[in-house]
Design a protein around this nucleic acid. Sequence first.
DNA 1: AATGAAATGGGATAGCT
DNA 2: AGCTATCCCATTTCATT
Lengths: 158, 158
Amino acid sequence: MMVEKMAVELDQIDRRIIRLLVEDASLSNNALAARVGLSPAPLSRRLARLYAAGVIRQTVVVDPKAAGIGFQAFVEVTLERTASKVGQRFIELVSRMPEVVECHTVAGDFDFLLKIAVRDVADYKRLLWSEFEQIAEIKTLRSTILLDSPKMTAATGA
Amino acid sequence: MMVEKMAVELDQIDRRIIRLLVEDASLSNNALAARVGLSPAPLSRRLARLYAAGVIRQTVVVDPKAAGIGFQAFVEVTLERTASKVGQRFIELVSRMPEVVECHTVAGDFDFLLKIAVRDVADYKRLLWSEFEQIAEIKTLRSTILLDSPKMTAATGA
DNA sequence: AATGAAATGGGATAGCT
DNA sequence: AGCTATCCCATTTCATT
């Protein structure tokens, strides 16, 4: 059952709250209230509304190094045929792979862009040669090594 | 000044805490404590350690639709020369552009992978033709339209 | 209808065992 | 690490504009 999101009108204050939270997610409600020139009570209500409507969402991100991630890559995937059924099956398969951190459906020279996070190159080889090799509908793979991410606005998800 | 991250040993419980938090960032400390079989106090200490060491980080993500984002794309950028100075300047420029949501330094057929989030195609054209056009060190751009992101493990950032 | 002030309830944390 | 007590923060209620 799909949850319908009601259309939510955002005023200036809402936008300011969101902007501040994106910059520093650890801000307390009181601190937020002070910065947007509101008392804690109405701020609490606004926040509740924003969360309930799905406008903003709390997440916790893990430092790759701490998680034992020593190698990350982007993989451009082209399927044999881009039929809905084929694509759907591919999505389900990669959804089960913990090494696939992101899967984007795209339109361009390829069909999917994956972001991969593994321990080391050996792990990556195993992923390519053992896991992906078994997915028949894959036509081509193109790997690009991630060196660094100088800008990461975690602000916009999905 | 660089902040040195101390090496933090993570035991089984730490890993479990992190896994639970990534799945549901809104879990209260009490709920977390119960699930990992700990009392609230020591759990609080562990959490504080994990945050302080930068192992995990709180973030707030915004629903693109709510933010007025109607068009997203990946852009593969190749620079004229991949010298440190040139690359650094490019990074600084895109860091100032709010439409550039992510900037990754990569090794492969191109030098940078950008993720772009704008209101509509008209905005995207303006970005390409006005903003990027002015960056002399860009040799080539290749755009790929983002249709959908069926998997987004916000778990691993940077 | 939304705000601000005050009070209450609950969770997070510090000290101690 | 657990228990207890304290403190602080978030939230609800109510009066108000």
